[in-house]
Write a protein that binds this DNA or RNA. Structure first.
Length: 798
DNA sequence: TTTATAACGCTTTTT
DNA sequence: GCGTTATAAA
């Protein structure tokens, strides 16, 4: 082992070293949270390159997000420099796009295929459900879409599904019909959806072993990150790629001259070596088909596989790890794994219960400001929540408290209407077969082309056996008014002009700037930008800026890919997720869902909304394995924190415009009590002498919910302190009562007089809502009116 | 065809 | 609470 080799191993613990240096057909690295897996992975790649066991071009490293891929490439480059070029470090999806582009002609697509994101495919499915009268059977586009997606992830197509489905059930027959039509629709549009990218690549490899062999011969070392999140199709793809080369020679498809590569006699070459890294405790994507068995049964799938366990954590304090271990330990049927650190206990976890989500948010804002004064950088603070909708309350308070923040992965840039419109213009140029894109831009901006005209175009196209796009060129033949004819002709002319710019018919290469310029041309000459500028809707100003940004993205793309065509650009754009542009959060607090948080780490983490029905989410309760997955999600959130972890919740939460009572999450009770320092525990909130609500004090007498629900302690007529007397604190971890304050079925009617612990006496003006959500509208004697949740407000009937 | 209004219903996570 | 969609009116 030479010096450079030694440098690669420096600072690694023994299991990490083993993971870097082991050589064999299959290696599973079970990497607990924060155990340095990216480091191990990059060093392993560097080690392979350094020892000349592999050329860069023989390495395929697969990650889950583009961001992770970029990071890995960067870190490998830091070690091996220029040598990193030629490696494929990419996501499953972009790797498959690369392969499919090269091989598309083998199976009825062209190189110019486009990619349908979930919105696109939803739109297509929606139309099909309508056409087939699907709602008669209770079909919703979302439901059909998720069924199709699940099936594709299992590598089933409409035909194979039909074979084993109960076809005497008319609903099943209809579903199969819609599924098949959907697939035909995609094919006709020369497009793949996300799931197809993987599945079709697998089909391609299976149907054309000679094609598969090309890639098997090329990639000798395959490394897969986040293996616990792979679904069956991705698993199958890995399997296909790691098969011995030439093994498929007897396959009937390999005769017949379909393949583009000359069949040649191959000496059987053994399969590529496979390294997978994962942590079954961090599997949080089962809902979209991730199969935890891929990792738990790895040793069975790849006999002779080596397993390396990384348990030492380099990220968090022992207190945080102990809490994480305790919670995840409640999941049964998992391999026991305990994270540990040698860096000390650190601070206690801080718990806080607010009266409302605003109160909770206020606490977080106050705490952030306090940390800020202690010289903590905003960028090292993150706030996590389970659902995107929870971010609103946080935002409101943060804005008021002047806490700079950035929402990660909120409304997605590429899902904004104006961006999708702009991309549809590009698609109309790059892949005119994609009828949906053409239809989308038909009347954007408004040109007076409505339903009637659209159908006329479609009928004409069908009659003439031409595409919808080509029908636009014959506006005069459509039998529509002259004004509309002119509008269509103008649109057609703009598209033609852009096509010449971006895809010159002469065959010469368009200049790198063509995409950005073409986009600008489309947006301005189509009148799209003018329409936005003329609009009086203030949001449209922001839309113009978004479009400017898209043009900037196109320019950036041209710089990075001088040979990139508009098709390449669209392909890249279709596969960027929002997790990918997390970087520019400098100087602001990061807000994101727990799912988005995976793979990230922060000094200080606020885990908010730690309530039943939120985490675990109520929808998960009914799904098999749901609560367990929610626990893993919680575990992921907890293990993101390096030094400080806050667990916060609220007593009441407004959801769907309704206020409801929230209960502390069961996960809180799974954390040993001594680990948490409750600033205000769920118990305190209901019992006398609890701490005061800061939110209330900050804005006394403010109407609305936050002021209204809030109450400070107060005697509880129905049981006082809900922790039974004489019970040791350990038995009831964290003193979390099973119930919050409960007034039972207190009956209130208009005209009743009540006394409120904080606001004094008043008269009930009205009662709205039902059951636990009944709300009393009370006019207090000082003139203030409040809305009070009858079940839990600290009130007594007089 | 477009616009205004009402009703509706849906609310988890995402490459 | 929200955005989307159906319906009615201009």
């Amino acid at each position: 082992m030479d010096r450079a080799e030694n440098a690669l191993l420096e600072g690694l613990n023994p299991p990490q070293r083993e993971a870097v240096t082991y050589r064999g057909p299959a290696l599973l690295i079970v990497a607990g949270a924060g155990s340095g897996k990216t480091r191990v992975l990059t060093h392993r790649i560097a080690s392979l390159l350094h020892s000349r066991e592999a050329y860069p071009s023989q390495i395929l490293a697969i990650t889950f997000t583009n961001k992770a891929a970029g990071e890995m490439r960067e870190r490998v480059e830091q070690i091996v420099g220029e040598n990193a070029r030629g490696m494929w470090i990419s996501t499953f999806h972009s790797a498959c796009v690369r392969i499919l582009r090269r091989e598309a002609e083998n199976f009825g697509f062209t190189k110019a295929f486009t990619i349908y994101d979930s919105g696109d495919s939803r739109a297509l499915i929606k139309r099909l459900v309508r056409d087939h009268d699907g709602d008669a059977f209770g079909f919703t586009p979302a439901g059909v879409q998720s069924r199709i997606s699940k099936l594709k992830n299992e590598l089933a197509d409409a035909e194979s599904y039909a074979r084993q489905a109960n076809m005497s059930d008319p609903a099943e027959r209809l579903f199969v019909e819609i599924f098949a039509d959907y697939q035909r629709g995609l094919q006709k549009a020369n497009a793949f959806d996300f799931d197809d990218l993987i599945a079709q690549t697998v089909y391609l490899f299976r149907a054309f072993p000679k094609v598969a062999d090309v890639y098997r011969r090329r990639f000798r070392h395959i490394l897969v990150d986040e293996y616990q999140d792979t679904n069956h199709a991705q698993y199958a793809l890995i399997h296909e790629l790691t098969r011995p080369v030439g093994a498929g020679e007897s396959d009937p498809y390999s005769v017949g001259g379909m393949m583009i590569f000359e069949p040649e006699k191959d000496p059987l070459l053994e399969g590529a070596s496979l390294t997978v890294v994962g942590d079954s405790d961090q599997s949080i994507y089962a809902f979209r088909g991730a199969d935890i068995r891929n990792i738990s049964e790895f040793e069975r799938d790849f006999p002779g596989a080596k397993v390396v366990l990384l348990e030492q954590n380099y990220r968090s304090t022992q207190n945080i790890l102990s809490a994480a271990n305790a919670v995840i330990g409640h999941n049964f049927d998992r391999k026991d794994k305990k994270l540990w650190t040698d860096s000390g206990d650190g601070e206690k976890i801080v718990g806080f219960t607010g009266y409302s989500q605003h109160d909770e948010a206020q606490f977080i804002a106050d705490e952030i400001e306090r940390l800020r004064k202690a010289d903590v950088d905003y960028a090292e603070i993150a706030v996590f929540y389970r659902t995107n909708s929870q971010s609103r309350a946080l935002e409101e308070i943060f804005i008021r408290a002047a806490v700079p923040y950035k929402i990660m992965g909120g409304t997605k840039f590429y899902e904004r209407a104006e961006i999708k419109d702009a991309l549809a213009y590009l698609i109309a140029v790059a892949n005119p077969a994609d009828e949906m894109a053409v239809r989308r831009i038909l009347n954007k901006p408004r040109r007076g082309i409505g339903d009637v005209t659209e159908t006329a175009i479609a009928r004409y196209a069908a009659d003439q056996q031409i595409t919808f796009r080509d029908a636009l060129a014959n506006a005069s033949a459509l039998g529509v008014g002259p004004k509309i004819q002119a509008a269509i002709a103008h649109l057609d002319a703009v598209l033609v002009e852009a096509t010449e710019k971006m895809l010159p018919a002469s065959g010469e290469l368009a200049p790198p700037t063509a995409v950005a310029e073409g986009l600008q041309l489309l947006l301005s000459k189509s009148g799209y930008l003018d329409a936005l500028r003329a609009s009086k809707d203030p949001q449209d100003e922001a839309r113009v800026e978004n479009l400017d940004e898209l043009v900037a993205v196109a320019r950036e793309f041209a710089r990075n890919n001088p040979d990139g065509t508009v098709i390449d650009f669209l392909g890249e754009v279709a596969l960027v997720a929002d997790a990918d542009d997390l970087d520019d959060a400098t100087g602001s607090v990061s807000l994101m869902t727990m799912h988005t948080a995976k793979g990230l780490e922060y000094d200080t983490v606020f885990l908010t909304g730690v309530e039943e029905d939120l985490i675990p989410h109520r929808i998960s309760a009914g799904e098999p394995g749901g609560p367990q997955e929610e626990r893993r999600l919680f575990y992921v959130g907890v293990t993101r924190a390096r030094q400080r972890l806050y667990l916060t919740l609220a007593m009441t939460r407004a959801q769907f415009g309704e206020v409801s009572v929230a209960m502390p999450s069961r996960f809180l009770q799974e954390i040993p009590a001594p680990l948490i320092d409750w600033r205000q525990s769920p118990g305190d909130v209901n019992s006398r002498g609890g701490m005061q609500s800061r939110a209330l004090n900050a804005r006394p007498g403010r109407g609305g919910q936050s002021g209204g629900w809030g109450s400070r302690g107060g005697s509880n007529r129905y049981g006082g302190d809900l922790v039974p007397k004489g019970t040791s604190i350990d038995k009831i971890a964290n003193r979390i009562p099973a119930k919050v304050r409960d007034n039972g079925d207190m009956e209130l009617a208009t005209g009743d007089r009540i006394r409120h612990d904080d606001f004094g006496e008043g008269r009930v003006d009205a009662v709205t809502g039902e059951g636990a959500k009944r709300v009393a509208h009370v006019r207090f004697d000082d003139g203030a009116t409040k809305k009070l949740l009858i079940k839990i407000a600290p009130i007594t009937k007089l």
